[in-house]
């Protein structure tokens, strides 16, 4: 008899459980469906020298990171010093993807702030970024030797993220 009246309380208890778990999640962070899949291919002009091309095939068989950035992105400026530091460690090469940017400002940016990238692809129209499922800069992908996306970080990289999320996922050391 009484259980019937306790039903609402029971349902509510389950809801509270979900809310509690929900509090520790960020609903706006959307995980990439690309993880574990082959990374998109691209061939774009190189920011440093637009007569050259940067292609995904250049990095075939090599682990590397792809960092999406732009000069209009405030967070990217913050992130830049972290990228320089990571590049100095020489663990994996970083490929830049300059997203929906102006070429000259991008060139000035790299000249002034330093260039952590092995090469930077210039994605003026944002078409390659769509293939990568980019929805905000900065974003950073880790691509393994088989060309599969192993990890994606949304937002600014920090040394902490580098050490805890990227390093453990990198196979051995190349070079």
């Amino acid at each position: 008899m009484m259980w019937k009246f306790l039903l609402p309380a029971g349902v509510f208890a389950i809801l509270v459980g979900f809310f509690f778990v929900g509090l520790s999640r960020d609903p706006s962070q959307v995980p990439s469906p690309l993880i574990g899949k082959v990374a998109p291919t691209y061939s774009l002009p190189r920011v440093e020298d637009t007569t050259q091309k940067v292609s995904s095939s250049d990095f075939a068989g090599k682990q590397h990171m792809v960092n999406v950035w732009a000069t209009w992105c405030v967070e990217c400026r913050k992130e830049h010093s972290v990228l320089l530091e990571i590049a100095k460690k020489n663990v994996v090469p970083i490929v830049g993807l300059d997203w929906k940017d102006e070429l000259t400002s991008a060139q000035i940016w790299l000249a002034q702030l330093g260039n952590p990238y092995l090469a930077t692809a210039f994605d003026e129209k944002g078409r390659v970024a769509i293939d990568f499922g980019v929805y905000g800069a900065p974003e950073t992908f880790l691509i393994d030797a088989e060309g599969k996306v192993r990890y994606k970080h949304i937002g600014s990289l920090t040394m902490d993220v580098w050490e805890h999320e990227f390093l453990p996922r990198i196979d051995g050391r190349i070079k």
Partner: peptide
């Protein structure tokens, strides 16, 4: 802000949970 979320959740649990438990006990 997570601390706010946690506070309201606790409050919610006491308020609604209390009322619904009381309901389960006395509604009959």
């Amino acid at each position: 802000d997570p601390s706010r979320g946690l506070f309201i959740l606790a409050f919610l649990t006491i308020c609604i949970g209390g009322a619904l438990t009381l309901y389960g006990w006395r509604a009959q």
